[in-house]
Computed example of a mutant assay.
Amino acid sequence: MLDFETYQELIGLYAEYAAVLDSADWDRWPEFFTDECLYRVQPRENFDRGLPLATMSFESKGMLKDRVYGMTETIFHDPYYQRHVVGAPIVREVDSRHIRSEANYAVFRTKQDELTTVFNVGRYIDVIQRTPQGLRLKSRTCVFDSEMVANSLIYPI
C-alpha cells in the first residue's frame, strides 16, 4: 500500500512529465528517468502478445538525451504542439525499491493552420524508483491502442 504523501508525489510526477512535454522543454524530459532506464513506445497488439517490436525503444538516460538532440537539431519535420491528458495513476504493486503503476493517456496534436487531432491514445506502464532527487522513472512503456501512428512519431509520448 502506498501512503498518501507518496501517492501525491506520484501524481505530481505524472502531471509534471506531461507539462514538460506540452511546453516542449525537451532538455528536462530525460531528467524524469534514472540513469539506467527503459523507455518504449509499443503498439498494444505487440505488447499483449509479448512481442518485443516497439516503435521507439531507448535503454538509458544517455539514449534519451541523444533523442532530444536528434529531434531538436537533426530531424526535419513540420512543427506541432502536443497536449497530454493523463488519468490518475493506478498503483499495481509497491515494494521497498519500486512502485509499479499505470495511467491512461491521450495526446492531442495541433499543427499550425490545422485543427487539433487525436494523435496517440493508450496507457503508461511504469516502474518508478525513489531516488535522492525524488521519484524517477526506471521504466516507462507507452502502450498505444492503435496499430498505426499518424505520420511519424517525433516527440516523446
Rank of each mutant, 00 (worst) to 15 (best):
1 M>K: 10
7 Y>V: 08
8 Q>C: 05
8 Q>H: 08
9 E>A: 13
10 L>A: 01
12 G>V: 02
12 G>L: 02
15 A>Q: 06
16 E>S: 05
17 Y>V: 02
19 A>C: 08
22 D>P: 02
24 A>D: 11
25 D>Q: 05
27 D>P: 11
27 D>W: 07
28 R>G: 03
28 R>C: 07
30 P>L: 01
30 P>M: 07
30 P>H: 02
32 F>M: 05
33 F>D: 03
34 T>A: 04
35 D>T: 09
36 E>Y: 10
39 Y>D: 08
41 V>S: 00
41 V>Q: 03
41 V>D: 00
43 P>M: 12
44 R>Q: 11
47 F>V: 04
48 D>Q: 09
49 R>I: 01
52 P>Q: 01
54 A>P: 10
54 A>D: 02
55 T>C: 14
56 M>P: 02
56 M>V: 10
56 M>H: 08
60 S>L: 06
62 G>I: 00
62 G>D: 05
63 M>R: 10
63 M>N: 03
63 M>D: 13
64 L>V: 13
64 L>M: 07
67 R>Q: 06
67 R>T: 03
69 Y>I: 07
71 M>Q: 05
73 E>D: 14
74 T>L: 12
76 F>A: 14
76 F>D: 14
79 P>I: 12
79 P>E: 11
83 R>S: 12
86 V>L: 00
87 G>I: 11
90 I>S: 15
93 E>H: 13
93 E>V: 11
97 R>A: 09
97 R>E: 10
100 R>N: 05
101 S>D: 10
103 A>Y: 01
104 N>A: 12
106 A>F: 05
108 F>K: 02
108 F>M: 11
108 F>S: 03
112 Q>N: 13
112 Q>A: 15
113 D>K: 15
113 D>G: 12
113 D>N: 15
115 L>C: 13
115 L>A: 13
116 T>G: 06
118 V>N: 07
118 V>S: 11
119 F>L: 06
120 N>F: 08
123 R>Y: 07
124 Y>I: 00
124 Y>N: 02
124 Y>Q: 02
125 I>Y: 04
127 V>P: 01
127 V>T: 06
127 V>S: 05
129 Q>N: 12
136 R>P: 11
140 R>I: 02
141 T>G: 15
142 C>L: 02
142 C>M: 05
143 V>F: 12
143 V>S: 06
145 D>W: 12
146 S>H: 15
146 S>Q: 15
147 E>H: 14
148 M>C: 15
150 A>G: 12
154 I>W: 10
155 Y>H: 10
155 Y>N: 08
